[in-house]
């Protein structure tokens, strides 16, 4: 499709020119990362237009994995692409040294919840002002479909015939660890993601946004489990667009209210994920308490 006939062409061109580096995409066809990057630049652009944010103050930090490639190298701004799982720890140093920076961490479920889980809970406890976008695709995508801490029980991965562990509910983890802003969306809910990103970027404290994303290359295999139960039409949909089908099958539900225990069921029978903003609170932050020591 040429630029002229694409109704979104002009809009895409606007964001691409201002916020993206001119590089070929590394993401698979149907991957959720593109939607997340698109949502991010829209949120950032809106805040810049509203004069609530300067582009030069944004620092994107990421670790290792597919999610890490969302800001680095694509976002045209300061980016720090770090070691596996340690993005939040790198970001902590940068934020404390220069509190003016608006620090944004992009991490994945393997990066942020397995190898980097410890840094996540401590950053939440410290309430250091930064935003963490945790892209949960329920699998290790970059290395080829191995089980992650978020992989649903009993599905098939490249390391287990039947994944033997229950999945991690990361919003409850963040809530328990003391994050002062917690939200969850799926890549299907782009408008909500953009609204949440805007809120999180301005939130004075530790903001955690979990974005359930589809991995049409590897995680789509989970749904082979249900294939027999599908109608021929659904099977055709699955074949055509496994990513879109995955999001539908997950049954994300908006709650519209603050919750201590948002539902997160990923069993074969019940696949209900409650979505929404679960907490927004203003609390004293680490940058404030550290500077208070100067007196």
């Amino acid at each position: 499709m040429s630029q002229q006939t694409n109704p979104l062409g002009k809009q895409q061109e606007y964001y691409r020119k201002r916020y993206l580096r001119n590089l070929p995409t590394a993401f698979c066809t149907g991957c959720g990362n593109g939607s997340i990057l698109g949502s991010f630049v829209r949120a950032v652009d809106a805040l810049i237009v509203e004069k609530k944010l300067r582009k030069r103050d944004i620092l994107c930090v990421s670790g290792i994995g597919c999610s890490a490639w969302i800001p680095s190298p694509y976002f045209k701004g300061d980016t720090l692409h770090t070691t596996h799982g340690r993005a939040i720890a790198f970001a902590t140093g940068a934020k404390i040294m220069n509190p003016k920076l608006n620090v944004v961490v992009f991490t994945g479920d393997g990066d942020g919840a397995a190898i980097g889980g410890n840094h996540l809970i401590h950053a939440a406890r410290r309430n250091i002002p930064m935003t963490v976008f945790l892209v949960n695709n329920m699998i290790y995508g970059m290395t080829g479909g191995q089980s992650a801490p978020t992989t649903p029980l009993h599905v098939r991965s490249t390391t287990y015939q039947r994944h033997p562990e229950p999945p991690f509910d990361l919003c409850r983890l963040a809530l328990g660890a003391g994050a002062s802003y917690v939200a969850r969306w799926t890549t299907f809910h782009v408008d909500d993601i953009i609204a949440s990103m805007k809120e999180a970027l301005l939130h004075p404290g530790f903001a955690f946004v979990e974005i359930i994303s589809q991995c049409p290359t590897y995680a789509a295999r989970f749904f082979n489990e249900y294939k027999d139960a599908l109608t021929p039409k659904e099977q055709e949909q699955f074949q055509r667009s496994p990513g879109a089908w995955m999001l539908k099958a997950l049954k994300g539900k908006r709650t519209g209210k603050e919750l201590d225990h948002p539902r997160y069921e990923l069993t074969l029978k019940d696949r209900t994920i409650e979505l929404g903003v679960f907490i927004r609170e203003e609390r004293i932050t680490l940058t404030e308490t550290l500077q208070a020591l100067w007196k």
């Binding site: 720890a89 790198f90 140093g93 940068a94 404390i96 410890n118 840094h119 550290l290």
Partner: peptide, 19 residues
């Protein structure tokens, strides 16, 4: 800053140096 472990300490000083 007292970090949660030495891995994080090393990471934080790299971040601070770039800041």
């Amino acid at each position: 800053v007292q970090m949660e472990d030495e891995i994080a300490s090393m990471a934080a000083i790299i971040g601070a140096s770039w800041a």
